[in-house]
Amino acid sequence: MLFISAVRASRVLHHCMLQSVMRAPMCFFDTTPMGRTLNRFGKDIDVVDIQIPLNFNGGIDCLLQVLSSIIIISVTNPVFIAAAIPIGLIYLFIQKLYIGSSRQLKRIESVTRSPIYNHFSETLNGTSTIRAFCAQEFFIGQSNVKVDLNQNTFFCPY
């Protein structure tokens, strides 16, 4: 049911997004790079198709495992409850810090992903010109720089 619902939601989301883009005024296409539009379509559909169902399924599994473990440990060793409460409070504090940092990293990743799609789209449109001037290595290098910048949000470069 979860995956069927995800496919249905993805279909509805894609249809609504496509309708919105097709009905957008021409000034939208003049001011918005093609890479940004492709980025939004690709990322949103990826999230609905893949990430939400897997995260939901993993979250339910993890929740059930943690609850069953806590119940079993609490029944066999009641002193555990006294130690679990302060640890839980510390966990909540750390979680608040993590959520803010994670949100900022996702914003940075999204901002640095759009130039990759834009550069790729422009490169495909200008392939014959790039070959005519033997500038393949230059464009490959530019693409690598943009991908490296995007990956810095996931991996520390040092």
Rank of each mutant, 00 (worst) to 15 (best):
L2H: 00
I4C: 01
A6S: 02
V7I: 14
R8H: 02
R8I: 04
A9E: 00
A9M: 01
A9Q: 02
A9F: 01
A9D: 01
V12T: 08
L13M: 10
H14K: 10
H15Y: 03
M17G: 05
L18P: 05
L18D: 12
S20V: 00
S20H: 12
M22P: 03
R23L: 10
R23H: 06
A24Y: 00
P25H: 06
P25K: 06
M26C: 11
M26Y: 00
C27Y: 06
F29A: 08
T32R: 11
M34Y: 03
M34K: 09
G35V: 07
L38R: 09
L38T: 07
N39Y: 10
N39M: 11
F41M: 14
I45V: 12
D46H: 13
V47F: 04
V48N: 13
Q51H: 04
L54K: 13
N55S: 11
N55F: 01
N55R: 12
N57K: 12
G59I: 10
G59N: 05
D61P: 06
D61A: 12
L63S: 04
L63H: 03
S68W: 02
S69F: 03
I70R: 07
I71A: 10
I73A: 11
S74Y: 07
S74V: 07
S74Q: 06
V75N: 05
P78W: 10
P78R: 02
F80K: 05
A82P: 00
A83S: 01
P86G: 06
P86W: 04
I87G: 01
G88K: 09
L89H: 07
L89W: 02
I90W: 02
I90M: 07
L97H: 00
L97D: 01
Y98A: 03
I99T: 13
I99V: 14
Q104A: 11
Q104S: 14
K106M: 11
R107I: 00
I108T: 10
E109R: 06
S110C: 05
V111N: 07
V111A: 06
R113L: 12
S114P: 04
I116P: 12
N118R: 09
N118H: 11
H119M: 09
H119A: 15
E122H: 06
E122A: 14
L124N: 15
G126Y: 13
S128W: 05
S128P: 02
S128R: 06
S128C: 14
R131F: 09
R131M: 15
R131T: 12
A132P: 00
F133N: 13
C134P: 02
C134I: 06
Q136H: 09
E137A: 13
I140E: 14
Q142S: 02
Q142Y: 03
Q142A: 02
S143L: 13
N144G: 12
V145A: 09
V145L: 04
K146G: 00
V147E: 07
D148H: 01
F155G: 05
F155P: 08
P157M: 15
P157K: 15
Y158S: 15
